[in-house]
């Protein structure tokens, strides 16, 4: 089966001003795919969205908004599977608590639900010095 091969590895400061940069990388990867039968513009929005949500979570909740820390992001496509990993340096949190839709009047806590809605598989596991949020989608 023909497949696109992509490998992106990027580290950016732990600051929300870089959300736009990371989101655009996701968007542009989707638009550049040669072998994707679905709606590329929808995929572009979705990848922008999940990378923005995942990075914002890492900045706010895991890296404790410390601007001197970094967020490390890996994006790869192999055998028509897209894998995105967002690494943080924090204590982590229980993603199962946020997997369901929030009550409408809640102002926070929708990010993980949105990521679950868009991706096929989501895990959050400890690493040597923090955690990694891994998000997989079959293309």
């Amino acid at each position: 089966m023909p497949t696109d091969r992509v490998a992106v590895d990027i580290k950016v400061p732990n600051q929300t001003r870089y959300l736009c940069l990371i989101g655009h990388i996701g968007e542009n990867i989707a638009r550049a795919l040669k072998h994707y039968d679905g709606d590329k513009e929808k995929l572009a929005y979705d990848l922008n969205l999940v990378l923005t949500e995942a990075m914002a979570n890492a900045i706010r909740h895991a890296n404790e908004a410390d601007p001197t820390k970094q967020v490390h992001i890996e994006i790869s496509i192999v055998d028509r599977q897209l894998i995105m990993r967002v690494y943080d340096h924090g204590q982590g949190f229980d993603i199962r608590q946020f997997a369901d839709p929030r009550p409408p009047m809640d102002e926070h806590g929708r990010g993980i639900f949105i990521i679950h809605s868009v991706m096929d598989e989501v895990t959050y596991t400890p690493t040597r010095d923090g955690h990694v949020l891994e998000m997989k989608k079959n293309l």
Partner: peptide
């Protein structure tokens, strides 16, 4: 063109 959960949260805050 793009809104995330924080943007939605700000609008919910305004609504409340």
């Amino acid at each position: 063109r793009f809104v995330d959960s924080s943007g939605l949260g700000a609008l919910v805050s305004g609504f409340k």
